[in-house]
Design a protein around this nucleic acid. Structure first.
Lengths: 192, 192, 192, 192
DNA sequence: CATGAATGAGTTTTCATTCAT
DNA sequence: GATGAATGAAAACTCATTCAT
C-alpha cells in the first residue's frame, strides 16, 4: 500500500529516467543534466534529489534498461522455435530499443564501469538462448563445427556493425530495413 | 619552392596532428585541446592557428589517418595471395593503428560528419581488396553464395565486435591475441 | 493549560535545538539544515515549521544557549569565594560547553547580528561576577590599579586565545589541559 | 629581464590577490570567486587560470600576507627600543592590515591547513621580537616572574580579543582607538 | 608564425526554502 | 503539526576560442 507521496516520487523518478533514456538515445551520453531536466519537465535540482550524481543516474538507467530488455529476451526461445524465429525475435526486441541500444554499444567505453556489467548481462542472456535454440535445433547437424562463442559473436558483430554504421545502410532504422536479409544470410553462414 | 616559414608551419602542423593522434588514441576523443598542445609541445593557441576549430582538427587528423591506413591497405592484395593471407594482412594493419582505430569505431557517432566519410573510405578500400581476393580465389567455388557485402560486413562486424569489446576478450591487444582464431573461423563461416 | 499539540510542538522544537547545538559544535556553523534534521530525527521541512529561516534557528539557539550558560554562571560567585575559585568555576562552565563556545567565538562575525547580543550578554554576566569577586576580595588591595574592563578583557582574551588556537596547545580540550596554568598566571598578572 | 607578457600576467595575478585581500577583509572568507572576479575586474575564468582552486588562491594570498606582515614586523625591535615602543609598533603594523587580520584570526578554523602555518609563522616572529625586547629591557628585573609564553599569549589574547570584538569597543578601528590604553595597561599587568 | 593570458558560456552539484499531502 | 519532494539560485570549476604581444 503506497502513499500518494511515494507514488508521486516514483512517478518523478520514472519521468527523469524516461527523459534521460530519450535524451541519451537522441544525443548520446554526453547530453547534459540540463537537457534531461528540460525533457523531463522538472527543475534541474530535482534530478539530484533522485540521483546523487550523473554517473548514478546513468547506472540506474542502465540497470533498468538491462532488466527490461532481458525480460523481453527471456520470452524469446520458447518451445520448439526455429533458429530463424529466434533471430527475428531478437532483432524485434532490439528494434524497440534501437536508438538507445545503438548509443550504448557505441559509447560503452566512455560510460561508468556499471555499463559494462549491464552490457555483459544482456549479452549473456542472448547467448544463453541462442545456445539453447541451436542445441535443440533438429538441424543441429546442419550447423558447422565452429565454437559457440564465434557463432554468437559473429551474430552480434553483424548486428552491431549495422547498428553503429546505421548511416551507411538506412535513413531510419537499419534493423527494420535489413532484418530479413541479416537473418537469412547469417543462417547461410553458419549452416554447412 | 617553399619559404622557411612554410616549412616551419608544416612541421608544427605535423607535430600537432601526431600529438592529437596519440592523445585521442590514449584518452578518446573527449581529450582536451590543452592536452594535445602539451603533448605536441606547442602552445595552446598554436593549435588554433593551424585548425580553426577542434572539429576541423579532428577532420584533418582523420583525413590523414584515412590516407595513411589506405596506403597500407593498398599494399595488401598483391597477386595471387590467398584469402587467409589477406585477412592476416588486414589485421596486421589494424594492429598497428589499434588504439586509435578502436576509438574511431567506438566514437564515430559523436564525431563530426567528416569522420564518417573517412571511415567509409577506409572500409571501401578494404572491401575492394577483399572483393578482388575472393574473385581471384581459385577456390572461389568453395565460397558460399552470399552477397559480397554480407561477406564483407560480417568480417568487419566480427573484427569490430572484438575491438569495441576488447575488455571482454583480452587485457592487451585483442587483435594480437585472437588473430588466428578469428581468421580461421571466419573462413570456415564463409566456406561451403 | 497546553493542548497536546502545543506540547508536541515544543518537544519537537527542543529536539531541533538540541540537534543543532550538537551539529554546530561538531561541524561549525556552516553545517546544513539537512544535517540538523537528520541529527534531530525529524524531516527537513519540520525545521522550517519551527524556524522561518536558518538565521532565526541560530538566533533562537544562541538565545537558549545564552540563558543556559548564564544560569550556570550566576551560580558562580556565591558568598565569600576567592578569585581563584571563581576563575576555576568559570572555566569549568566553559568546559561543559567548550566545543560550541569555541565555534561561537570563532565564527561570531559571520553569524547573524543576534549572535552578538547573546555574546555580549554572556560576557556581561561573567564581567558582573568577576567584578563582585574582586570587589569583595579581602586582598582587594593586592590587585593592581587597572581599570576593571581591562582586568576582565585580559582574562577573556587569554581564555579565548587558548580556545581559538586550541590546535597550538592541545589535542583535546585546551581548557582542561591548561586550566591551572591559566588561572595561576592570570592571577599573578593582576596582582601587585 | 621580463617580457611584457610576464609583466602583464603578474599584474593580473596581483590584481586578483589584491581584490581577494579586500573582498575577504570586507566579507570574510565565505566570499565567492565571483565577488573576487568582479572586484578584480577580470572574468570569472581568469581566476582559475592563475589559481587552480579557491583553496590555492587563499593559500597564496595567505603566504603573501604572511611574508608581507613579517617583513614589517622584522623592522620592529631595532636597537634599544623600549617595550612600549615595540608594542606600539606591533599595533601599528596590525592597524595597516586590520580588517584582513581580523578575518584571519576569526575564521582560521574554517580555512585550509595552510592558514594555520601562516598564522603560526606570524606569531612566532612577533614572539621572537617581544622576547628580545624584554630580555634586553633594562627594566627586565621590573617584569614579573611569569613564563614567557604566558606574557606573549596574554598580549596577543588582549589584542585579538579587542579585534574580534571590535563591535563592542569601536565603530571604526579598535586598534587605533584603544592603542594607548592597551599598551599602557598591558605593561602595568606584566610589571611588578 | 607562435604564444599563452583572458574570456565567458557551460558543466555538475549544493542547499535553504516552499508547499501539497 | 509534520513530512519530504520539488525548486532554483547560487557555487566552483572547465574549456574551446580569441587576440594582443
Amino acid at each position: 500500500m503506497k502513499t500518494k507521496r511515494q507514488i508521486q516520487k516514483e512517478a518523478t523518478r520514472k519521468l527523469i529516467l524516461d527523459a534521460a533514456y530519450q535524451v541519451y538515445a537522441d544525443e548520446g551520453f554526453s547530453a547534459t543534466t540540463n537537457q534531461i531536466a528540460k525533457a523531463a519537465n522538472v527543475s534541474h535540482g530535482t534530478i539530484f534529489v533522485h540521483f546523487p550524481t550523473v554517473d548514478n543516474l546513468i547506472s540506474c538507467l542502465l540497470e533498468r534498461f538491462g532488466s527490461e530488455i532481458n525480460e523481453h529476451l527471456h520470452l524469446l526461445s520458447e518451445k520448439d522455435e526455429s533458429l530463424e524465429t529466434f533471430l527475428a525475435a531478437h532483432i524485434n526486441v532490439l528494434i524497440s530499443y534501437e536508438d538507445f541500444y545503438k548509443r550504448l554499444i557505441s559509447e560503452i567505453n566512455i560510460l561508468p564501469q556499471e555499463a559494462k556489467y549491464v552490457f555483459i548481462n544482456i549479452q549473456s542472456v542472448v547467448s544463453f538462448h541462442l545456445n539453447q535454440v541451436i542445441e535443440r535445433d533438429k538441424e543441429k547437424k546442419a550447423i558447422k563445427e565452429i565454437p559457440m562463442h564465434i557463432i554468437f559473436n559473429s551474430w552480434l558483430g553483424l548486428i552491431h556493425y549495422y547498428l553503429t554504421n546505421n548511416y551507411l545502410f538506412a535513413a531510419g532504422s537499419v534493423l527494420t530495413d535489413h532484418k530479413d536479409e541479416l537473418i537469412l544470410n547469417y543462417i547461410k553462414l553458419i549452416r554447412k
